[in-house]
Design a protein around this nucleic acid. Structure first.
Length: 194
DNA sequence: CGGGAGATGGGCT
DNA sequence: GCCCATCTCCCGA
């Protein structure tokens, strides 16, 4: 590969730090249908302690086991009967934390994204939400537990985002622990989930 | 446009 | 049987 994939050590850091530093990096999926990619513009941190919104908060189960595995892997889960959410496992093995990727700025394979999502969508509606971006990128349960440093699914260095351009707010779409400032987004980016 | 209801299926009590 | 880290459509303005 002729690019700089992010390696194991990159992911082995505290989850809030990873959620911030993932902003601006490029998520790539080389699928059988073609290549899609996009810059990450919105993330959320899910923590193991004092965070009832986190899937891992009540201990390890079959569903959330990947969260407790080594950092730098994909935790993909199915939700609301229709959608997938893509997370990057963080911290160190055994802890149970991850970063939810909530929105991308589409870069490669926009036509394929439209084919997967529906042709009538505006480009700002292709990947502006966790379920939408999984659909557009072709990420489903097969990708759960894959290592994110090689094809098909990987992250590479992208844009540098200055601290002053990162907006911090409460997490979205959850019913518990809604008051924690664990959502990170690139200020005024047109591809945010809201 | 903005808000709200409904779809949908896996996981857990 | 109820909950859920969602999305789309449809309605009223």
């Amino acid at each position: 590969m002729d690019f700089n994939t992010l390696d194991h050590l990159f992911y082995q850091k505290n989850t809030v730090s990873l959620a911030k530093v993932l902003l601006g990096s490029l998520l790539v999926n080389e699928s059988d249908e073609g290549i899609t990619s996009g810059f990450i513009v919105e993330t959320e941190a899910y923590l193991s302690k004092n965070d009832p919104a986190c899937h891992a908060s009540k201990g390890k189960t079959k569903r959330n086991a990947v969260m407790f595995g080594p950092p730098g892997r994909a935790y993909v889960y199915f939700i609301y009967g229709n959608y997938y959410c893509f997370n990057v496992v963080s911290a160190v093995e055994g802890i149970g934390e991850a970063v939810l990727v909530r929105a991308l700025e589409p870069i490669t394979g926009v036509e394929l994204m439209k084919k997967r999502r529906g042709d009538h969508h505006k480009i700002t509606n292709l990947t502006s939400g966790p379920g939408k971006l999984c659909s557009a990128m072709g990420i489903d349960r097969k990708y759960n537990n894959v290592v994110l440093n090689k094809p098909p699914l990987y992250l590479i260095e992208g844009r540098t985002v200055k601290r002053s351009r990162i907006e911090i707010s409460n997490r979205i779409g959850i019913t518990q622990a809604t008051d924690k400032p664990l959502r990170f987004s690139i200020k005024d980016n047109p591809f945010l989930s809201r």
